[in-house]
Design a protein around this nucleic acid. Structure first.
Length: 916
RNA sequence: GGGCCUAUAGCUCAGUUGGUUAGAGCGCACGCCUGAUAAGCGUGAGGUGGUUGGUUCAACUCCAACUAGGCCCA
């Protein structure tokens, strides 16, 4: 007969199949309805805070795998700190101004863009940004991320824009802001500066010329090569590479100086018959040497040393015009060179260059060549075709032209040094991240704050119409700030300048009419002040933040700009810790980009597998290095997920008749194996707490999964089954096991809830734990990790488990010889000469067969004649046999007691007691 | 070209201050179970440690160069 009904088999509604794509929306709705964030904040009020300040993603397009990765990592930390009881307000934010949005909006406008009113364009940009803030917000929420989604920070809000202006005022007040020249890509047809992604490249014809620059004191010349003769009037220096050797050559064109490595190239290019090497010298020898200006003969210029000089082509000596080249500009700053840019907005020479005044630079090339020729300094000239930057809109060739810009002086008031000091106070994770930003700050130039664009926060400065004097006045700026707080930054463009400057007079000439600055702030300035606009202003937050967490590109970006502004205005860093993660690349470790067509949409994946699996994937990898995402990247996380889920299901099923308050067994009354597994639970908790605290999520997941898989499923649960199923329902031993798995469930749920918030919530709803919160995320995990630790048990069980592994090998041999199928058909015989092990066998004499899941275990007095499996240290011989007796119809154990009882002829004694 | 990073089994990761046969999970192969069953258990096969040199009695671990890839500059 069947005794199945008399068993306590697991029973639960908790579905084996997760069906995450159905579960997740359901729980999201639940959280939305109960307003989970508000509830959590209410519950944690007054507790220690942990502030993770969100770096704002750009409100352009849908979220991608990188932003998904980043937000999930942040959520791990916020949810972990929360379950540990911290008050962790998380305010997500968006970066809303800037070129990419303006560019997209302008592109959509087509021809109309050229004539559109600035205010209307700004309005369209605002709609555009709003649209994507909404889209991204829903996409982030779908990933199970908690936070102030209903009141995020957006950099285009009145309050935020006002704070940007306020901080500009603070910087002005402290003397960090100055005006200076800087070369930018300039379209002389559109008469506007262009940003990086507005520049296209096309093959264009250009002159390629070698020109002699005569040394002042000697009858020798430097030889330079250029493809932009029109920049020669702006020449201020000749750059040598500091680490290269230079040779003096006696040629058909006189004695010329070129880089040793390029002499052959030069000789071939200029077609000189004579080329005798007179000397070879280090670049340093020529440093500071004076030469005659190529255009203005009475002007003297100097040789400088600069790293950017290449040995790929040319002569190894670069004609340097800081007003017309970025390298030159950088070198110019370093060597304090004059920044000359004698070219007007239309690309025509100004009166600085009398002989070419009014000529369009590209047309002037010809005349310049002629003049050089006449002078005899033009050594060689030809036409080449090379890739040249052109305007994305009108396709005309761009020039590099120095323009007036606003700068933040990185060296004012020792700022650079202070920033470096602050860097040393911050904890950078991983450690090398400190070196990276330290080197960057050491090298970086002044920060150019101004952009010649429309969509951004205006720079609140006016110029005197009469004398051109700039009014950089904190009182004026703060007045504008107040207007912006009230009306938004559009007010700057809406109001007439006379209204804005009412009552003001030029401090220089006394005139009262002004002109508005039309430039806006670099968007990095927007996000740089989030620590002030958000962390300082929101009452639920606390400055400085505990943590910033962004990808590795933010050392140049957000980490750095925030640090600069904060150090300049507050005197210290806005964060205590900075965590950097790598980037998500495609399967070939290549960057994902639209043009390569290898972009993976997280929404698509989530639709198929659920966000939970993406979260598990995020937690499974070491984020400190870049990660490849492949189609099968989610395969392992899926398997891991099902294993974890099944462990939960097993526990829930076996607790269906258990009520902790009534049925729990006291620790001292529990069976040793139950005490042991609880000791292991404490050890697991201790490790996971440490890993979480160090933000090492892949170690959290690894150990959590190993616990579920090794310690629970294949070891503890497998052994426990017999007891849970066949023992008397209310027997102490069965209740002991249930008590253990109850405690395990209670901790595991909370331990994994930061990584698997949906599954933890689902499991929690099936978990009968008496008094419950509305959500698992309102719970706090017991921080005590020394409840069950027991060194003696740990020691003993280490040996027993080692023995079980050996027994498994013995059983496998028996199976392979077709003697048994399942282990219950076997009997184990053990022999040991080790005292400690003998003792263990005595203490666990009744338990050994449960441990091995066999029907019988005999401890022998002496070894048997047959071949045993051997264990070393402690020594033990293991023999196997087929168990003797009959199979109990109820518990399936083979026992000699089966058949002895008339009433229950097919049951063993143990089961008869239960069934009775 | 410069600063910083990465490179251990098919995949994701461990490997204490250099010291015996380099570990785990997943996957894979084979087998068992059929009372966690679109589950569970067992056993096993997988690694010239990116490459090449060097230091050392001894290097995955230290040093150098190189290769491939990444970020940020240029």
């Amino acid at each position: 007969m069947s005794y199945k009904d008399s068993l306590n088999l697991p029973k639960t509604e908790f579905p084996m199949k997760a069906n995450l794509t159905e579960l997740e929306p359901r729980l999201l709705r639940k959280w939305e309805q109960m307003n989970i964030n508000e509830k959590i904040m209410e519950k944690r009020k007054g507790n220690d805070t942990f502030i993770l300040h969100d770096g704002p993603p750009y409100a352009n397009g849908h979220i991608h795998l990188g932003t998904t990765f980043n937000k999930i990592l942040k959520d791990f930390i916020v949810k972990y700190k929360n379950i540990r009881g911290y008050n962790t307000p998380y305010v997500p934010g968006w970066d809303c101004h800037g070129m990419p949005i303006e560019h997209n909006v302008t592109k959509n406008l087509g021809e109309k863009a050229k004539t559109i009113d600035k205010l209307i364009l700004r309005k369209k940009c605002r709609y555009y940004a709003e649209k994507f803030v909404k889209i991204q917000r829903e996409e982030f929420k779908d990933l199970g991320i908690f936070g102030y989604w209903e009141s995020p920070y957006i950099t285009m809000s009145n309050e935020y824009e006002g704070t940007i202006i306020e901080h500009f005022g603070k910087l002005v007040e402290k003397g960090f802001i100055h005006r200076g020249k800087r070369p930018v890509h300039w379209c002389s047809k559109c008469q506007t500066a262009l940003a990086g992604n507005e520049i296209e490249y096309e093959d264009k014809k250009a002159p390629s010329i070698f020109v002699k620059l005569k040394l002042v004191n000697e009858d020798k010349s430097l030889l330079i090569w250029t493809t932009t003769p029109w920049t020669l009037p702006a020449n201020v220096a000749a750059a040598f590479h500091p680490k290269e050797k230079y040779v003096e050559l006696d040629t058909d064109f006189g004695i010329i100086i070129v880089a040793d490595k390029l002499k052959k190239f030069v000789i071939d290019s200029i077609k000189t018959k004579k080329a005798d090497v007179i000397s070879v010298r280090e670049a340093e020898y020529y440093n500071g040497e004076e030469y005659e200006h190529p255009i203005f003969s009475d002007k003297k210029c100097k040789v400088i040393l600069a790293d950017f000089v290449t040995m790929e082509t040319g002569s190894g000596i670069v004609h340097s015009a800081p007003g017309h080249g970025y390298d030159d500009y950088q070198a110019g700053l370093k060597h304090d060179l004059e920044i000359i840019s004698p070219v007007d907005e239309g690309g025509k020479f100004t009166d600085y260059v009398k002989q070419y005044e009014g000529q369009f630079v590209f047309n002037a090339n010809k005349n310049i060549l002629n003049d050089l020729q006449e002078k005899g300094t033009l050594v060689f000239s030809e036409e080449i075709i090379h890739s040249y930057p052109i305007c994305w809109r009108c396709k005309s060739e761009l020039i590099f032209r120095a323009t007036e810009q606003w700068f933040l002086d990185i060296n004012h008031n020792d700022l650079r040094k202070k920033i470096l000091d602050e860097i040393n106070k911050v904890k950078w994770i991983p450690g090398w991240s400190r070196d990276r930003i330290y080197n960057m700050v050491t090298e970086r130039p002044d920060w150019c704050l101004s952009r010649q664009r429309s969509w951004g926060v205006p720079i609140p400065v006016v110029y005197c119409k009469e004398c051109g004097e700039e009014v950089l006045d904190k009182n004026f700026i703060f007045k504008i700030r107040d207007l912006v707080f009230e009306h938004g930054a559009d007010i700057w463009f809406e109001k007439d300048v006379s209204e804005l400057t009412k009552g003001m007079k030029c401090s220089k000439c006394g005139n009262a009419s002004f002109e508005k600055e039309e430039d806006i702030f670099d968007v990095w300035f927007d996000s740089a002040i989030s620590h002030a606009a958000v962390v300082q202003k929101r009452k639920e937050l606390k400055w400085p933040s505990d943590l910033y967490l962004e990808a590795v590109d933010q050392h140049r970006g957000w980490f750095q700009v925030a640090l600069i502004v904060s150090t300049a205005t507050e005197g210290e860093a806005p964060y205590r810790e900075v965590l950097t993660h790598g980037l998500i690349l495609d399967k070939n470790m290549k960057k994902m980009s639209k043009s390569l067509g290898n972009v993976i949409n997280p929404k698509e994946i989530a639709k198929k597998t659920g966000a939970e699996i993406i979260r598990l994937w995020v937690s499974s990898i070491d984020y400190t290095s870049d990660q490849a995402f492949r189609e099968d990247s989610l395969k392992t996380p899926k398997d891991v997920y099902f294993r974890i889920r099944n462990s939960f299901k097993y526990i829930l099923g076996n607790l269906n008749d258990f009520e902790y308050s009534k049925d729990a067994v006291k620790l001292e009354d529990m069976m040793d194996i139950d005490k042991y597994i609880l000791a292991r639970l404490d050890i697991l908790k201790e490790k996971l707490f440490n890993y979480y605290d160090e933000y090492q999520f892949h170690k959290v997941l690894r150990d959590f999964h190993n616990f579920c898989s090794n310690e629970l499923s294949s070891f503890y649960f497998d052994i426990l089954k017999d007891r849970l199923y066949t023992y008397g329902k209310t027997s102490q031993d069965r209740r002991s096991g249930q008590t253990a798995i109850f405690i395990i469930m209670n901790d595991l749920l909370k331990l994994i809830s930061p990584i698997l918030p949906f599954t933890a919530e689902e499991t929690y709803s099936y978990f009968n734990m008496g008094k419950k919160e509305e959500s698992v995320h309102l719970e706090v995990i017991d921080s005590n990790i020394n409840r069950f630790k027991n060194e003696q048990l740990e020691h003993d069980w280490q040996i027993l488990i080692k023995l079980k592994d050996k027994v498994n090998i013995a059983l496998e041999n028996l199976r392979n010889s077709n003697t048994i199928g399942k282990s219950l058909e076997a009997k184990i015989l053990l022999f040991t000469d080790n005292k400690e092990l003998k003792n263990l066998f005595e203490n666990y004499s009744e338990f050994l067969k449960e441990l091995f899941i066999v029907s019988n275990v005999d401890v022998l007095e002496s070894p048997l004649g047959k071949d045993p499996i051997k264990m070393k240290n402690p020594n033990c011989l293991i023999y196997t046999e087929k168990a003797e007796g009959n199979k109990c119809a109820r518990c399936w154990i083979i026992s000699k007691t089966v058949g002895k009882n008339e009433k229950y002829p097919d049951l063993c004694n143990r089961c008869i007691d239960v069934v009775k």
